[in-house]
Structures are given as structure tokens and as C-alpha cells.
């Protein structure tokens, strides 16, 4: 699938929550989508800073998108269920555009381990990272 097609696919499965937060795909990096949103009242925590929950929401969508894209077309009917998430906060997010990129560490038969990180002006200075575990299951009707 071309990068343009992948971006369309990712935008297609973004849920209402992602849309209400202003999330979109910024660009593709190594075949995976970089998810982004602009700073605004909907992501503000304490005045002048990103809300930790808003950062987590962005990284979670980036992790799901990375997993979906990595699973690809062949397994697009596989159900993915988040089991847990661990978030580490490194820096306060400022009034800037924020980016997040997921990376799949392993896809097993039943579990997928996915990481994601968020950054603002400098990708080498993450503001937060997440580890997520997903349960994978075939759709019941299949």
C-alpha cells in the first residue's frame, strides 16, 4: 500500500474521540503514521501546558494506528483490544503542535506489544512514552 493510501486508511478508522481532539496524520515515517494535533483548549491542562491525559490519548491512537498498519490488509478483520497502558511523562508539553509515533515490538498469536512516543519541536526529546499490550482475537462470526 502506498503512503497516501495508508494515510487514508488510518484517517478512516480514527474514532470520534480522535476527531474531537483534532488528531490527524501528519506524515508517514518508516511506513508508519505520525499522528498529530495542534495546541488548543481541548488539550490544555494546567495553563500553558498539555494535559497528561491528552498526551496519553494521542500516543494511544498512534499505538493503535501503528498496530493496525503493521497487521496490514491480511489481518484487517482481527479484533484488537487494549489490555493495559503504562505512560511515562518526561517533559511538560508546551503550547506547540504535538506528534506521536507508535512502534510494534512484537506481534504474537494472542498478544501485541506496542510502544509509542510523543514529542513537539525535537523528536530526540520525547515529552512522554507509552507501553501498551493488546489482546488479538479473530472476529466471532468468522
Amino acid at each position: 500500500m502506498s503512503d497516501t493510501d495508508t494515510i487514508e486508511t488510518v484517517l478512516g478508522f480514527m474514532p470520534p474521540f480522535a476527531k474531537t481532539m483534532g488528531m490527524t496524520v501528519d506524515h508517514m515515517q518508516g511506513g508508519l503514521p505520525v499522528i498529530t494535533y495542534d495546541y488548543g483548549p481541548q488539550v490544555m491542562g494546567r495553563p500553558g501546558f498539555l494535559h497528561g491525559g491528552a498526551m496519553s490519548g494521542l500516543m494511544e491512537i498512534a499505538a493503535i494506528a501503528a498496530l493496525r498498519v503493521t497487521l496490514g490488509k491480511d489481518e484487517s478483520n482481527l479484533k484488537i483490544k487494549p489490555v493495559n497502558i503504562t505512560i511515562n511523562f518526561m517533559r511538560g508539553g508546551r503550547e506547540l503542535r504535538t506528534y506521536a509515533l507508535g512502534e510494534v515490538t512484537r506481534i504474537g498469536r494472542r498478544v501485541a506489544n506496542v510502544e509509542a512516543k510523543a514529542w513537539q519541536d525535537d523528536p530526540s526529546k520525547p515529552i512522554a512514552t507509552v507501553f501498551m499490550n493488546f489482546l488479538l482475537s479473530a472476529p466471532r462470526s468468522a
Binding site: 480522535a18 497528561g52 490519548g57 497502558i85
Partner: peptide, 8 residues
């Protein structure tokens, strides 16, 4: 609902 709002 998404899990993001639950984290928040």
C-alpha cells in the same frame, strides 16, 4: 467510549 478520556 475511547480509553483516552478514561486516562484523563
Amino acid at each position: 467510549i475511547a480509553s483516552g478520556p478514561i486516562i484523563s
